[in-house]
Structure formats: structure tokens, C-alpha cells
């Protein structure tokens, strides 16, 4: 299968994260997060650098929205842009999801979540953006795209004590595990579908790329 080089016109970028968490004292606020998000946005939109069309960017950084609303916004953006780009003759090929902020683990299974602006200290599972939920959304609507997830997460100090290997490794392992599980499930679904309908020839591989990075915001 020939690999098509990514172009700005065929790439989508979703920017997530937060710089302040008014409902949670556990997460330290910092303007460094906002500056980082601004830098990412500037790089991708600069015509001399990446040159991404502004309409291909969904900026949800510091958005005052619940996890559910964020999920809806991402779904609508993907649906609308994928349709438009196909109509324009520039079918989307790549999706970048960039998260800047805090991450953490919740519950007995230590599920990995991303702390959004609306994340509450008393119920992080309900108010935070669950990685599994995000992966489901991407699998649902962008399974034919090459997906790159970049996580610039800062973990609470307590998380280091909870895990021997450090939170970054755990977050990476957990997210990767979620993706693999989803891949297997979708693979079996596709096999079932193949019995009834021919698979499109130009179907691209379902692939994920992920960078997980714990950071100290004050150093940015």
C-alpha cells in the first residue's frame, strides 16, 4: 500500500487541555499551559511552518465545557470537516490530537483521564475526559485516518507514589492497552462486515501514534 505524505490540507488538528482548574485544587494552574497551547496553535497555523488551514483546527483548550460537551464538539467537528474535505477533493488523511494540561488516574482500575477545565475534585471520573471515551470517539468517526495523539501531561505528585514505574509509563501503557482492545474489537466487527459488503480498496490502516510526556509547567 502506498503511503501518502501528510499535507496541511488533509490534516485535522484537535487541541485539548486547560491552564486553570477552578473546581479542583489538586491541579496546579499555570499560564505556561496556555502559552504552550498558543505556541502549538501558532506553529500549525503559520503558513511558513505547517500551514494548516484554520478551518481544520478545533481549539478546545481552556474551553468551559463538560466532558460530554467536549465529546459532542469533537464528534461534530470530525463529521463536518470530513464531509467538507471529501467534497473539496482533499479527503482527510491524518488526525492530530494534542493535549496540554494535567492527567491522572481514577478508580480501582486506575483509569487514565485528562483533566479539563470543568474537572471536579470530588468526581474526576465523571467530570474529567476519560481517555477510553476519547479513544471511542476517534474510533467511531476517524477510524480511517492516521491518528497521532500527543499528550503533554503533568501528573499530580501523588500519582508518582501510587505507581512504581511512574505515571507517564502507566498512562502510556494504559492508553496503548485501550487502543489495542479497541483495535481487536473493531477488527472482529470488520470481519463480520466483510461477509456482507466488500471492503473499500483505499481503506487506510487504523494506526495510532502517541507521545506521552510528563512535565513541570513552571519550566515552560
Amino acid at each position: 500500500m502506498d503511503v501518502k505524505t501528510p499535507t496541511p490540507q488533509t490534516t485535522l488538528l484537535i487541541l485539548l487541555g486547560a491552564s486553570v482548574w477552578p473546581l479542583s485544587s489538586e491541579f496546579q494552574s499555570s499560564q505556561a499551559f496556555a502559552k504552550a497551547a498558543q505556541g502549538v496553535k501558532g506553529y500549525f497555523l503559520n503558513p511558513r511552518l505547517f500551514g494548516l488551514p484554520a478551518k481544520n483546527l478545533l481549539d478546545l483548550f481552556d474551553a468551559d465545557m463538560s466532558a460530554d460537551n467536549l465529546d459532542v464538539a469533537i464528534g461534530e467537528f470530525l463529521q463536518q470537516r470530513l464531509k467538507s474535505m471529501k467534497a473539496e477533493g482533499n479527503s482527510a488523511r491524518d488526525l492530530l490530537l494534542y493535549f496540554i494540561g494535567h492527567g491522572g488516574f481514577v478508580g480501582r482500575d486506575s483509569d487514565f483521564f485528562l483533566a479539563i477545565r470543568r474537572t471536579r475534585e470530588d468526581n474526576k471520573r465523571a467530570s474529567g475526559l476519560q481517555m477510553l471515551s476519547l479513544v471511542d470517539r476517534l474510533d467511531e468517526q476517524a477510524n480511517h485516518l492516521r491518528r497521532v495523539i500527543i499528550l503533554d501531561c503533568c501528573f499530580a505528585a501523588a500519582a508518582y507514589a501510587a505507581f512504581q514505574g511512574g505515571p507517564a509509563e502507566v498512562a502510556l501503557a494504559k492508553t496503548a492497552n485501550m487502543l489495542k482492545v479497541n483495535q481487536k474489537m473493531r477488527g472482529s466487527q470488520q470481519k463480520e462486515q466483510r461477509c456482507s459488503a466488500p471492503l473499500a480498496k483505499d481503506l487506510r490502516p487504523d494506526s495510532y501514534q502517541m507521545v506521552v510526556q510528563p512535565c513541570s509547567p513552571e519550566l515552560f
Binding site: 500500500m1 503511503v3 505524505t5 501528510p6 511552518l49 505547517f50 491524518d94 492516521r146 491518528r147 497521532v148 507517564a168 509509563e169 502510556l172 492508553t175 496503548a176 487502543l179 489495542k180 483495535q183 487506510r204 490502516p205 487504523d206 494506526s207 495510532y208 501514534q209 502517541m210 507521545v211 506521552v212 510526556q213 510528563p214 512535565c215
Partner: peptide, 25 residues
């Protein structure tokens, strides 16, 4: 400084991390 990590969970159809994605100034 923490070291960044790259992982490609699914490489059944190739490694996305090897695709030339960003222009090199």
C-alpha cells in the same frame, strides 16, 4: 528533564511514527 516516549500501539499496517509528517526547516 523527563524523557519523551513514542509508542505505536498498532503497527499491523505500518508504523505511523515513520511517516514524514512535519516539514523540516
Amino acid at each position: 528533564a523527563p524523557r519523551p516516549v513514542v509508542d505505536s500501539p498498532d503497527q499491523s499496517e505500518g508504523d505511523v511514527a515513520e511517516i514524514p509528517f512535519f516539514p523540516n526547516p
